[in-house]
Design a protein around this nucleic acid. Structure first.
Lengths: 213, 213
DNA sequence: GAGTGTTTCAAACGTTCGTTTCAATCGATT
DNA sequence: AATCGATTGAAACGAACGTTTGAAACACTC
């Protein structure tokens, strides 16, 4: 039945690379089938048309990059929950490595130039995580209205996504070696410190005092 | 000679909108000529082909948006400089409605799906502004090393770019009407408050206390 | 107002794309 | 070995695209 080397799977793999590289419009079905070692008609036979193939590939990208929908945060104090979420978000979205290397680029492309498939992506993958963050934020700021909660969450997510979306620009801006020196541990700690300080739950950011000093 | 309503100018205007909306591949010359009120052959007559038209449009976008490289910050206190930069950044990059409204979206598109032109873009468009932010941040945190300064700046820029990069996702996430309610004034104030609080230069963010209360 | 270079126009060209077709082939079941 | 649904293959289809064409319309000079 589901041979791992089946044409369908090879098509998804090849399509993922092609869509991630060129986007939906510029991607060529002929290229995809060639790379998958399949016939030109294979896409239409297995998926119907180009758009449905894209939808399957996009959801597959999210499936592979999102094994856990929500992190285990238990009943930690709110500040630690927030720190845990930031670590989770970085691991899953920002620095997580994908098999084949096309899932994250594809997802990022979709977020910035959405297609019709975006609604399902938002509903299945983004909203649950955003609601988790919002609930943590509500715990920290019980008095804030919904609008304030939203922008507080956006400030957290924006800081994190920065390192995904502007990677090419950042490399040219500060030099590739300096960008590479910003490892996940350092970034998670910075974003968490920055955010907790902004919320009045920790010391000011950027003072670089060693805790042991 | 150079009638401001000349076909060539109207083509650049229409092409800017089309390229900004759909990108190079998905943009249609027929749509561009239609919007410009020009004949289908006009693009080839005035620019040669689609790619040369794109180059001209992209350079025109930079030319128009490069009038003000840096905001007037004078010798305000550092916290006010930072607030001024955030306002400037929002006006120029995030909500900046340039004539026709296509220059910034087109540039953003180029930034996240870079071509060979990215190096020049970084040098002329991004680096001067980033260095300004870094100098402000250095004034606030004289003791911080370069790496810390970088991520502090990234936290500011990330919060701002959030509202440009993920606009479509945000609309689906919180509803278009809620997204529309986040006007520039509100966002500038939020990001500035959040950032200054993170740096220990202001009250904690999200408390929503009226300053007069 | 004839002459000349520039710009616009409707129509079509050649290509490429996604998609379809239908016969050939495979694989399991009897 | 025969059967039959599932899959693959070579070829072609229709549509849409960027581009070209050649004549008409225009603007300007003398």
């Amino acid at each position: 039945m589901s041979n791992p080397d089946a044409t369908k799977d090879r098509l998804i793999e090849a399509a993922g690379r092609e869509f991630a590289e060129k986007g939906f419009e510029a991607a060529r079905i002929r290229t995809i089938c060639e790379r998958a070692g399949a016939n030109l008609a294979a896409v239409n036979y297995h998926f119907g048309d180009k758009e449905q193939l894209y939808r399957v590939v996009l959801l597959e990208a999210y499936r592979r990059r999102s094994t856990t929908v929500t992190p285990e945060l238990g009943d930690l104090p709110p500040a630690e929950k927030l720190r845990g979420f930031i670590r989770f978000f970085f691991e899953q979205v920002v620095v997580g490595e994908d098999e084949g290397g096309w899932q994250t680029p594809l997802i990022m492309r979709e977020l910035f130039h959405p297609t019709a498939a975006l609604d399902e992506v938002v509903g299945r993958w983004i909203r649950p995580r955003f609601e988790l963050l919002r609930s943590i934020m509500r715990e920290i700021r019980p008095g804030a209205d919904e609008r304030r909660l939203t922008v507080l969450c956006f400030s957290v997510v924006g800081q994190c996504l920065m390192y995904r979306m502007t990677r090419q620009v950042s490399g040219r801006l500060i030099g590739p070696e300096n960008l590479a020196s910003l490892d996940a541990e350092y970034l998670v700690d910075h974003v968490a410190t920055f955010t907790l300080a902004a919320l009045g739950l920790g010391p000011a950011a950027g003072l670089d005092e060693t805790p042991e000093g």
